[in-house]
């Protein structure tokens, strides 16, 4: 038996918002693969839950007439990993979703929960940062859009207000079209493992495919929140694809990240990973963008 004091199954997003407003202690539960574990742990013992599990309006992926990708927050990792629209437009994100836990966890875990938990190791986070995702939050005062870069305020902390539900994750056409991407996860095991470090790289090439038109380099677990290496990204705009380019990117990333030591890995090891994974991810992203690999 879970130590839950109050449980309310919402019938719609509006109903969930109402229930959250009525109870300032209430916590949202979607798939429960974070929340239920924390209840077992005692961290959330005696909590009050508002469940948005199974709400049809929170499930599915679509592409609008303008080419914007809309991923509803309650969509499971399994659906995301196999969704034909995502596999065509943002395969890096579908691949990232496929790296979470194991099959049963991917069936229950939602992408909305992965973002709202505010955790730096969340497998979808680095890709969503690289893709400049926009988060659609619906609360008592209506709906607002928050760029993912403004969402996180610290480990486990976000700007989401108590009565807000993350309803969708949106990715504009200009943020995926023409890019090649690659997400790499480093963990001690191949499955059922939280990332020691996650790295998402996206590359758009110049028309002759010999230089970088735009680089996006995002990390999970390289800082207290997911992050982008924006200075490095700017520094290599227009740079020719040479072996030195990868050195410059790796060095740039090392100057921007702020990893910590944890029981999973030391700061020093994470720095090693930051450098090596930037090279591997960027190299693969260049190939996926249609460029030459032999750098």
């Amino acid at each position: 038996m879970y130590d839950i004091e109050k449980f309310y199954q919402a019938r719609s997003v509006a109903d969930a918002v109402r229930a959250l407003r009525a109870d300032e202690r209430a916590i949202v539960i979607a798939g429960g693969s974070d929340v239920l574990i924390e209840i077992r742990d005692g961290k959330l013992a005696g909590c009050s839950l508002v469940s948005i599990h199974g709400l049809a309006e929170l499930e599915g992926v679509e592409r609008t007439a303008e080419g914007e990708i809309v991923i509803r927050a309650g969509t499971s990792f399994s659906r995301i990993a196999n969704d034909p629209i995502l596999l065509r437009t943002v395969p890096m994100l579908a691949y990232a979703a496929d790296q979470v836990g194991g099959p049963q966890i991917r069936n229950i875990g939602t992408i909305g929960g992965n973002v709202c938990n505010g955790v730096t190791s969340a497998d979808s986070a680095s890709s969503l940062w690289a893709l400049n995702a926009t988060l659609e939050l619906t609360g008592g005062e209506g709906t607002r859009l928050v760029p993912i870069r403004e969402f996180y305020t610290g480990p486990g902390k976000t700007v989401r207000r108590h009565d807000e539900i993350l309803t969708a994750i949106r990715i504009a056409r200009a943020d995926y079209e023409g890019f090649g991407g690659c997400y790499l996860k480093y963990g001690k095991r191949n499955a059922m493992e939280i990332a020691t470090l996650g790295c998402a790289a996206m590359v758009r090439l110049t028309p002759d495919q010999k230089a970088i038109a735009e680089l996006r380099l995002a990390y999970g677990v390289a800082a207290p929140t997911p992050m982008r290496c924006t200075a490095t990204e700017e520094a290599v705009r227009g740079a020719a694809i040479t072996p030195e380019l990868l050195d410059r990117i790796a060095q740039g990333a090392l100057n921007e990240v702020k990893p910590r030591s944890s029981w999973r890995a030391s700061r020093e090891f994470r720095l090693q990973l930051v450098s090596e994974m930037s090279r591997r991810a960027v190299r693969q992203a260049i190939v996926n963008a249609g460029g030459e690999a032999d750098v």
Binding site: Y2, G32, I37, H53, P103, I105, N107, I108
Partner: peptide
């Protein structure tokens, strides 16, 4: 604790019965 729910595998230890 794995069972199939509507044909897909779930861990029932982290699945609330009411769902």
């Amino acid at each position: 604790c794995t069972v199939l729910i509507d044909g897909e595998a779930f861990d029932t230890c982290i699945y609330l019965s009411l769902w």
